[in-house]
Design a protein around this nucleic acid. Sequence first.
DNA 1: GGATGATCATAT
DNA 2: ATATGATCATCC
Length: 224
Amino acid sequence: MSLINAPDNVEQLMQRVQTIAGMTLASLAHSINVEIPENLRREKGWVGQLLEKLLGATAGNKPEPDFVGLGIELKTLPIDARGYPSESTYVCVVPLTHTEGLHWDNSLVKAKLSQVLWIPIEADKRIPLAQRRVGMGILWQPDTDTESKLACDYDEFIDRITLGEVESITAHQGECLQIRPKAANSSALTKGIGDEGQSIKTLPRGFYLRPSFTRQIIHQWKTK
DNA sequence: GGATGATCATAT
DNA sequence: ATATGATCATCC
């Protein structure tokens, strides 16, 4: 695989983004000697990892934005036949212990969502993976109203976790964000807070952005 | 058909 | 086990 350095500045990053826009996953993978799987069934994160390599993302699996120096998080966005996101977007792991004093302003969710480079990717299952094209990236920041909605969701979730209600949180809660399991399987457990304040073993959870949320981002971009 | 809960690959 | 990259599979 070829080695691509981290971009020095936003302009350089966006120039790379523009260069790959319109290209197929097969040609992009080939350009850096990455093998392309038949489908994503066993490699669900393959597209995201390909884009990280192409654009020089550096965070790896560390809990921080992908382009640390630029404060930019990279997210691929699977786009359906109608031109809108078809899946939720994973943000980061949900803290399930030591949640006292946690709030939006000192959260990892805020750090990651303060500036996101969304890369739309064709994801219609009728298109073979190799032939799917990459769209033009969108450098996005939440507006004031959007950020307060995110903050509201986040703080409510943390409140419930602190109160020992983690096991009764479902994906129905939250306007923009939701909490869902994020684990290798249903027997992977982590430490959490029980309903009597005791330590319990529970499923690891992740924060996700609802498709309705990312749909708005795409919609705003299309109509501006 | 869409959303929820479950799962897959990889690195540390 | 925890974190990243996400999509899959099933149920409603």
